[in-house]
Computed example of a mutant assay.
Amino acid sequence: MRYFKNIFEFYINSSIHVALSCFALVHLTYSMFHISYNTSVAFFTFFGTIVGYNFVKYDALVRDKIVKVNAQIQWIAFLSFLSLIATGYYFFQLERFTQIIGLVFLIIVLLYTLPFFPNKKNARNWAGIKIYIVALCWVGVTLFLPIVNNNAEVTSFVFLVAIQRYILIFVLILIFEIVDLKWDDPHLKTVPQQIGVSQTKRVGVVLMFLFVLLEFLSNDFRIEFLALKTGLAITTVLFLVYANENRSRYYASFWVESIPIFWWLFLMLFS
């Protein structure tokens, strides 16, 4: 049992699960816009997420000696190195403009992690900005990257889906911020720190209601898609409502991050 627990912890801590969630959203983009599947974009996103998230999570901790470099950290570093090589390989398979967009998001990740400006912390520590940067990156990488690489037309429907996806990612991060409330530095000024947990949950519920309402504006409106997104919204709201500081770390890092994966699986099932 201990052996399987170690594997599961490595799966979570090495960002494989969050990368799979990102991978699922890329597949959703291909399905929703009926564009041909591109392996390079999907795996660039998957391996790039592992590299990006692990860099963000462990760079400063290891550099400041907050986390001891144990066997698991070494294996995570090795996986990140292999993922970096894979990311580079798939990067050069992308279209030129897609590469430029990928570099833009790489710069954002570096800005998010490293202190570039004198007397300033990294962007991750800029008060209140974290949630907007992360949601923006997820929408850019999982939605616009596949569309641009396929030279598909960027229509009003694309922006509608972008708003919906931004809302979903934003609310999922709100759940993380509630669960991490007692661990986060008060100076981060996360949403729950600024307006309180109860008000944060109300904001999340309203946003998910808007998420469903926006589906009626879709030029590809189908009742089964509405039902699927309504189920997705209800599931997300339930996780939000029952989120609190005393939840297990797996509540957010596994179950909440599984929501896009289940969305993808259900879409495949009903398509």
Rank of each mutant, 00 (worst) to 15 (best):
S14M: 08
S15W: 11
I16L: 15
I16G: 06
A19L: 02
C22E: 12
F23P: 00
A24S: 15
H27C: 14
H27G: 14
Y30Q: 09
S31K: 09
S31D: 12
H34M: 13
H34D: 14
I35S: 00
Y37R: 00
Y37P: 00
T39A: 07
A42G: 02
F43C: 06
F43N: 05
F44C: 01
T45R: 00
T45L: 05
T45E: 04
T45Y: 02
F46A: 03
F47I: 05
F47V: 08
T49H: 07
I50S: 03
V51T: 12
V51N: 08
G52T: 09
Y53V: 13
V56L: 10
V56P: 08
A60M: 12
A60S: 14
D64V: 08
K65T: 09
V67Y: 13
N70C: 06
A71N: 14
F78D: 04
F78E: 06
F78W: 08
L79R: 00
L79V: 05
L84I: 11
T87D: 09
G88A: 05
Y90W: 06
Q93P: 03
R96Y: 11
F97V: 15
T98F: 05
I100C: 08
I101P: 01
I101W: 10
G102S: 15
F105E: 02
F105L: 14
L106H: 09
L106T: 12
I107F: 15
I107N: 03
I108K: 06
I108H: 02
V109M: 10
L111I: 12
L114W: 14
L114F: 14
F116T: 00
F117H: 11
N119W: 07
N122Q: 01
R124Q: 09
R124D: 04
A127Q: 07
A127K: 14
G128N: 06
G128V: 03
I133F: 15
A135K: 03
L136A: 13
C137N: 07
W138D: 10
W138K: 05
W138R: 02
